[in-house]
């Protein structure tokens, strides 16, 4: 073997280990999404209490004083998710405020110079489920949901400068009840996906929705006597997952 051939064999042998090395590229998937633990809803709508449907009432005072119109109500609901799989389930607490003004009446029935108002603070503790699996997995941006809740609604009635008192009875109190809500939310992420991602990475808001929901609520101390603050109402608003 000539010297040149020997050098060629040595070079070949030296190169062999390099051929045997595997080139492994490990691609780790790094999620840019923040954890999703709860939600917040802001909503508004009309709240028309079924006061005139109280058993034994021989008139329609709500209709007479407020023209049968609804209280404009704003509510905020904080939600905590305890299940995220095929949909999302959790508990929520909501609080709101609504008021309606009318004109007080003289003994003759004529309109007085003073205003009277019914004011409510609807409070509710809900359990809920929303079917957002289709939105996350299949890209369908509609999320139906339902809620079932215990309701407590403090109320007070004013006339002129303060709470109205009639024959020693003060016009304020609170009523218990229950309510069921069904709604559908439109996931806004599909309109501006990039903006939605920025919203998540910058502020921790995973998803945002516009929603409409219908509530059936019986707020009459579970059939007890007194003011019937039951209502059937639509509300509309904005929801954020965080």
């Amino acid at each position: 073997m000539s010297r040149a051939s020997a050098l060629g064999v040595v070079a070949l042998l030296a190169a062999l280990p390099a051929w045997g090395q595997d080139t492994v590229v490990v691609e780790e998937e790094v999620s840019l999404r923040s954890p999703r633990t709860g939600g917040i809803q802001f909503r508004m709508g009309g709240y028309k209490p079924l006061i005139d449907e109280e058993p034994g009432l021989n008139g329609t005072p709500y209709e007479d004083y407020f023209g049968g119109e609804s209280l404009l109500t704003f509510e905020v609901e904080l939600q905590r998710y305890f299940y995220q799989g095929v949909g999302t389930a959790g508990v929520g607490f909501s609080a709101g405020y609504g008021e309606k003004y009318g004109t007080a009446r003289l003994a003759t029935g004529a309109l007085a110079a003073e205003r009277t108002a019914l004011r409510l603070v609807p409070l509710a503790f809900n359990v809920f489920y929303k079917f957002d699996y289709a939105a996350f997995e299949w890209g369908i941006p509609l999320v139906p949901y339902g809620k079932l809740g215990l309701i407590y609604t403090p109320w007070w009635i004013t006339k002129g400068a303060g709470t109205e008192v009639v024959d020693g009875n003060r016009g304020s109190g609170g009523r218990w009840g229950w309510g069921a809500t069904g709604g559908i939310a439109f996931m806004l992420d599909v309109l501006e996906p990039r903006f939605a991602r920025d919203f998540d990475s910058d502020l921790g808001v995973n998803h945002s929705y516009l929603f409409a929901e219908y509530t059936y609520a019986d707020v009459d101390n579970f059939g007890g006597p007194g003011l019937n603050l039951s209502n059937r109402r639509w509300m509309f608003g904005l929801a954020l997952d965080y």
């Binding site: 005072p61 709500y62 004083y65 009318g102 007080a104 108002a117 019914l118 109205e164 009639v166």
Partner: peptide, 9 residues
């Protein structure tokens, strides 16, 4: 005058 509470009662 009567407010709503008076009218209701």
């Amino acid at each position: 005058s009567e407010g709503f509470y008076g009218g209701y009662l």
